[in-house]
Design a protein around this nucleic acid. Structure first.
Length: 859
RNA sequence: GGGCGCAUAGCUCAGCGGUAGAGCGCUGCUCUUACAAAGCAGAUGUCGGCGGUUCGAAUCCGUCUGUGCCCA
């Protein structure tokens, strides 16, 4: 075995072997209890980024542990078709050839998208193998697959028949670049610099001033609205004024929605281009005049025809200024503006006919499932956010003016007929019948993911075995986008059974300074680079160690390097064990045969198993990973392995016992680490145990073995060794330098550990002519050292004085507390006892340190 | 504008009522035969400010300041 672990040599072959042997395949017919997690489907256009790596590390560790615990595990892989994103990618490809999708026509274009997917889509699947994801590849699904498309059509039909899907003309969020409607949550608001202009409508006494950031829409104004109680305008309500530039006469209406405090208290009303105005228009039966086309270009006849909306804005303000109608201008005026989440283009509210889901009853059920505890959100602090959203949900616009996606299964007849066609029905044919040209929102299909991937609407054995799924692991950022949709659809389609019982939310990956990673900021990291440099395990370990529930995880290269060092440390400790004949053969020797060190480490091992188990069940990945890190490094590697050295060197039956315990400790530790660092543990575990694979090994169970006496005994030993080392270090001795020492250990538990003490503190026996130049009293024992010459008295005086000062401070604090009658009377007895113990300890320390100081030769 | 968080060692974060912790970084000394991707030892904090509750507050409450996110 080389002295360094080289991940690149083992990771690829190990993964292929796992897949070939079918470890990750989920069996419908298994008798084992099921454990199911569906992958949050990555976008078919995407490649693996740190966010995926993070999420997959969490899911993989959960599923690997459950597999080891004897569950029939299904980690369901797949991708979604990402309607807008994918169509954009292929349209850009076409543009390079000088073509648009319209040149190809719908059918050929969709064919072209499939071709693109076959050639360059789904890169992420290959990259997931690098990470070690234990998914069942034989079950990989895509939202546009035949079966999943059937599921979409089925649920559409069912919702339609139940009156939960309807068609209506409303204001929607329109992206003039993607040329499609998008839903409310696909709009990102940000503060932009715009302008607020105040325009005088009408003349003389009959004039009224309105303020707007969107002057260009004034061409479509059909009213001016004021608050009904606004005394300034009461007399004008019901009258008409002339709309500038157009000559049209529009009414002044009173509407409670108007904020009298904003601007002049009068607003222009453009029902076709603003959601609030649309509602005002409905209440007052106003016409809606569309003045912008799908590209955001002015369609109103006149001098502005053909101008883009932003050009039109300044042109119209200019024209109004020329007429002397601009009363005030505020520029820049910072206000919140909606942008397309896909392409960042400013959203254009647009009046159009779309399909909608009536969400109220669905959202109610989705909220209730969490409220009544049938679904738990981890961490709980995220619940209010979920409720706030789900309880105030507006109807969901599901139609998209795209070609790539699930086409809406509705046919229109020559006489205005509308027929929704189910998956087993034939669409109407004949003269004048045609299908709706729109497709459905991608989230509509991914909302079915937890059961459509299992074969629903068919009553398949997979659905039977693996639904409902166990846990949903996803980022809090898509709680609304995806989780809520799965809850709504799942409860509806599966007769009230939620699609999962637990939602475990994680945060976003950030850079080492806690900054959001972004390509434009230049701090984005390709996880593949780090895996190349440090191994998949190192990346996984780093991510797991940062995974506090629901909070963001910062990551930097230094940290991955640190994790790589940890993996290497595990490698070398196991290497040591193998070189020294550690074994897992035969039963563990009975407690009477074990040394104190053996009993101590086995006690700590079992405590660690219990601790890690509890933390896993609570989705506390950072804590459990940290617990494993410290147990492995600080206890097993730094102390237990060191303690075995003297025993192993002595040989005999004691060494055999130690070899067995060492084998046991490493076996269990490797199994505990396996879900987080699968590759290095597989390599080492198979070498150590000769077993087939740690992937299918049994998850460690707490044997219940505890030994508080041994724990105290080893702690004392550690304390003495550290004390001697500290003295040596203070005295400037080289670490390897042997020092003659006379040990007086009688009456303490250290008697049995003289060998270990001498070996770890580098102390040789006192021989002829031994002359103690320093004496260290520690915990009832003394260590006398012969430094063969003068010791550094000043260094020692400094050290002792510092410790004395600390002990005196401690004493003073304890005395003050115990002198406080209220404390003694009211505090818990255990707390008081603790302080008394501290007082005693401090008193002892002061005596000892004072004596040592006095014993020092005078300078 | 509304809501939710967060402010703890140089950096990133745990701790959330009873003596301040981790990783990385830092300072010494070492290639001591598992490991220099390491070992040993060490230093570092009025726990954002101000009030309050309590015998006792980093931890609970109020308030201010700073900062982040979500929604409108």
């Amino acid at each position: 075995m080389p002295t360094q672990y080289t991940p690149a040599d083992v990771e690829g072959p190990l993964y292929e072997r796992w897949v070939e042997r079918g470890y990750f395949a989920a069996d419908d017919k298994s008798e084992k209890p099921p454990y199911t997690i569906v992958i949050p489907p990555p976008n078919v256009t995407g490649s693996l980024h740190l966010g995926h790596a993070f999420e997959h590390t969490i899911i993989d560790s959960l599923t690997r542990r459950k597999r080891m615990q004897g569950y029939e595990v299904l980690w369901q892989p797949g991708m979604d078709h990402a309607g807008i994103a994918t169509q954009n990618v292929v349209e850009r490809e076409l543009a390079k050839e000088g073509k648009s999708r319209h040149d190809l026509g719908r059918e050929a274009f969709v064919e072209r998208v499939w071709q693109w997917k076959a050639e360059s889509g789904g890169q992420i699947s290959g990259q997931m193998r690098r990470l070690g994801d234990g998914v069942d590849w034989s079950r990989e699904r895509f939202t546009m697959d035949e079966g999943l498309s059937q599921a979409v059509q089925t649920i559409f039909k069912r919702l339609y028949d139940d009156g939960l899907i309807y068609r209506a003309e409303r204001i929607i969020n329109w992206c003039p670049r993607c040329l499609t409607a998008i839903s409310d949550i696909e709009v990102e608001y940000q503060d932009d610099e715009g302008e607020l202009v105040s325009i005088r409508y009408g003349e003389g006494d009959n004039a009224i001033v309105v303020a707007t950031t969107r002057a260009e829409t004034m061409l479509g104004d059909t009213a001016v609205a004021v608050h009904p109680d606004d005394e300034r305008y009461k007399h004008m309500v019901g009258t008409e004024i002339e709309l500038p530039l157009t000559g049209r006469r529009i009414p002044i209406v009173a509407d409670a929605h108007v904020d009298p405090e904003f601007g002049t208290g009068a607003v222009k009303v453009t029902p076709a281009h603003d959601p609030n105005d649309f509602e005002i228009g409905q209440r007052h039966d106003l016409p809606a005049i569309t003045v912008l086309d799908e590209h955001g270009v002015i369609t109103a006849h006149g001098p502005f025809l053909g101008l883009d909306r932003f050009e039109a804005r300044s042109a119209i303000v200019g024209a109004l200024r020329a007429e002397g109608r601009i009363v005030a201008e505020k520029r820049p005026y910072v206000h919140s503006v909606g942008h397309c989440s896909r392409c960042k283009t400013t959203i254009e509210p647009r009046l159009s006919m779309q399909w909608w889901v009536k969400v109220a009853p669905l959202a109610k059920a989705a909220g209730d499932a969490v409220r009544d505890g049938s679904v738990k959100i981890h961490p709980e602090e995220m619940e209010p956010r979920y409720f706030a959203w789900v309880d105030n949900l507006r109807d969901w616009c599901i139609s998209r003016q795209l070609w790539w996606g699930h086409r809406i299964p509705v046919w229109y007849g020559p006489n205005g007929e509308i027929v929704c066609v189910g998956p087993d029905e034939e669409p109407p044919t004949g003269e004048g019948w045609h299908q709706d040209t729109d497709v459905l929102d991608t989230w509509f299909s991914s909302g079915l993911w937890p059961f459509s991937t299992l074969g629903w609407p068919g009553q398949t054995p997979s659905l039977e075995k693996f639904f409902p799924t166990s846990v949903l692991v996803t980022g809090y950022d898509i709680l609304f986008f995806w989780v809520a949709r799965m809850m709504m659809f799942g409860l509806y389609a599966m007769d009230g059974t939620p699609p999962f019982h637990t939602i475990a939310l994680h945060g976003m990956v950030r850079d080492q300074f806690g900054k959001k990673m972004s390509k434009s900021f230049g701090n984005a990291v390709n996880p593949l680079d780090w895996m190349d440099a440090y191994g998949a395990d190192a990346l996984r370990f780093t991510l797991a160690r940062g995974a506090n529930p629901g909070t963001d995880v910062p990551i930097g290269e230094d940290w991955v390097q640190g994790s790589r060092n940890f993996c290497n440390k595990v490698w070398n400790a196991t290497r040591f064990a193998l070189m020294n004949g550690a074994t897992v053969e035969g039963p563990l020797p009975a407690a009477e045969q074990l040394s104190a060190a053996d009993r101590w480490i086995l006690s700590r091992l079992n405590s660690t198993v219990a601790e890690v188990d509890a933390l896993y069940d609570d989705y506390q990945f950072a804590k459990l990973t940290d617990a494993l890190f410290h147990f492995a490094w600080d206890e097993v590697f730094d102390w237990y392995v060191e303690l075995t050295k003297s025993t192993l060197a002595e040989g005999g039956p004691a060494a055999d016992v130690t070899r067995r315990v060492l084998g046991e400790v490493l076996d269990v530790t490797l199994r505990l680490l396996h879900p987080i660092t699968p590759f290095v543990t597989e390599t080492l575990w198979t070498a150590l145990t000769g077993g087939e694979s740690v992937v299918i090994a049994e998850w460690p169970a707490d044997s219940g073995f505890r030994d508080a006496v041994a724990e105290r005994e080893i702690e004392l030993l550690q304390q003495v060794i550290t004390e001697v080392r500290r003295f040596r270090s203070d005295q400037g001795l080289k670490p390897g330098q042997k020092v003659a020492a006379r040990l007086t250990l009688e009456g303490t538990s250290l008697v049995a550990h003289e060998g270990a003490l001498r070996s770890l503190a580098r102390l040789t026996p006192a021989e002829e002519g031994f002359h103690a130049t320093a004496t260290l009293p520690i915990a009832g024992a003394t260590v006398a050292l012969d430094l063969s010459g003068a010791i550094d008295v000043e260094a020692e005086r400094k050290r002792l004085s510092k410790d004395l000062a600390a002990a005196e401070k401690e004493l003073a604090q304890a005395e003050a507390k115990l002198g406080n009658e209220a404390f003694v009377a009211k505090a818990a007895p255990a707390a008081v006892d603790k302080i008394r113990g501290r007082l005693a300890k401090a008193t002892e320390d002061i005596e000892r340190l004072t004596a040592q100081l006095e014993a020092l030769p005078k300078a």
